[in-house]
């Protein structure tokens, strides 16, 4: 904002207040993240006693060593990678062609189909009928339960549709058709190469969804060999912790549980980081794509 005219006193006060407020917001968000990183490499007794509250104390990589030796975590990691890659590919194959067709003004039935899709955003059969359907289809305890019930998201189809409408000029389509180019060829040879940003946005949105999701796995999978990382994490971070933090523990019991708890504590913070690592790594580079995705969505509520 170009300050052409000299700042008034009120404006200066505002600026000071503004910068400090944002600084506080920044710290509130940043602190827990720093704490997790520090705790994951600190001596667990220093973490549990509260001695370590900001920077690592009693540096150790014992926690990470235990994580890497944990077979369940490895298996979960591999399963999650598999579900994420396969799921995202299916998502893209379903979403992009549909969004392109719906973006075409000469596509008879686009209004009806868009309505059909959008309606599901606001009304659905709900958990139980969906579960029974997946069960009837024989997908319980198969990888398909992880990738098919969420093969597309209405919102993402809408975002892609808006992108195609805005970026692919109608003239281009018309002249391509004059040259005898089929719709299929047009989509593969002209539209997709022009649409790298939206492909990236969609891959990221869907990919993060697969990586972070746990609920489908919770209801559709009981075979531990198929568990994605998030379900393994749930056992480590939620189920074990809940039982120890809510029970009324006496002194002597606490003593006995102490060593086990130490072990749990030391890997707790490490797994938070290890499980989020792929996202942490790509996030700074791809932030603008994520942001772009949200902004396209805002173009046309």
């Amino acid at each position: 904002m170009g300050a052409v005219i000299k700042e008034t006193k009120a404006d200066k006060t505002f600026k000071i207040f503004n910068y400090s407020f944002l600084f506080i917001a920044l710290m509130i968000v940043l602190y827990p993240l720093i704490y997790i990183v520090s705790a994951s490499v600190s001596d667990p007794s220093a973490v549990n006693s509260g001695e370590m509250w900001f920077l690592p104390k009693g540096f150790t990589l014992e926690g990470y060593k235990l994580i890497f030796e944990n077979e369940q975590i490895w298996k979960g990691y591999l399963n999650t990678i598999f579900y994420t890659v396969l799921g995202t590919l299916i998502n893209l194959a379903v979403t992009l062609p549909a969004a392109y067709a719906l973006a075409r003004k000469d596509f008879v039935g686009r209004g009806f189909l868009t309505g059909l899709f959008v309606l599901t955003m606001f009304f659905s059969g709900g958990l139980i009928p969906t579960y029974l359907l997946v069960k009837d289809l024989g997908m319980i305890d198969t990888i398909w339960a992880m990738v098919l019930p969420n093969a597309a998201a209405v919102w993402n189809i809408i975002i892609s549709r808006i992108y195609f409408q805005v970026t692919i000029p109608t003239e281009l389509e018309e002249s391509a058709r004059m040259d005898g180019c089929s719709n299929f060829k047009m989509f593969m040879k002209i539209v997709l190469p022009l649409s790298a940003p939206i492909i990236a946005v969609m891959a990221l949105f869907y990919g993060v969804g697969h990586w972070n999701g746990y609920f489908n796995a919770l209801i559709y999978l009981s075979d531990k060999d198929l568990y994605p990382l998030q379900l393994v994490l749930r056992e480590i971070l939620v189920l074990q912790e809940m039982s120890s933090s809510t029970a009324n523990i006496t002194e002597s019991m606490a003593e006995a549980m102490h060593s086990k708890e130490q072990l749990a504590a030391i890997i707790k913070y490490g797994v938070m980081i290890v499980s989020t690592l792929p996202i942490i790594v790509v996030y700074p580079f791809l932030q603008r794509y994520f942001v772009k995705g949200v902004m396209i969505g805002s173009l046309k509520g």
């Binding site: 917001a25 920044l26 968000v29 940043l30 993240l33 993060v208 990586w211 972070n212 999701g213 746990y214 998030q230 379900l231 994490l233 749930r234 480590i236 971070l237 939620v238 912790e241 707790k268 938070m272 499980s275 989020t276 996202i279 996030y283 932030q287 994520f290 942001v291």
Partner: peptide, 15 residues
């Protein structure tokens, strides 16, 4: 920094 927590999974958040 403030966008980042959006990408933390529910399970990790609960943890």
């Amino acid at each position: 920094v403030t966008y980042a927590p959006h990408f933390i999974s529910v399970v990790v958040m609960a943890g």
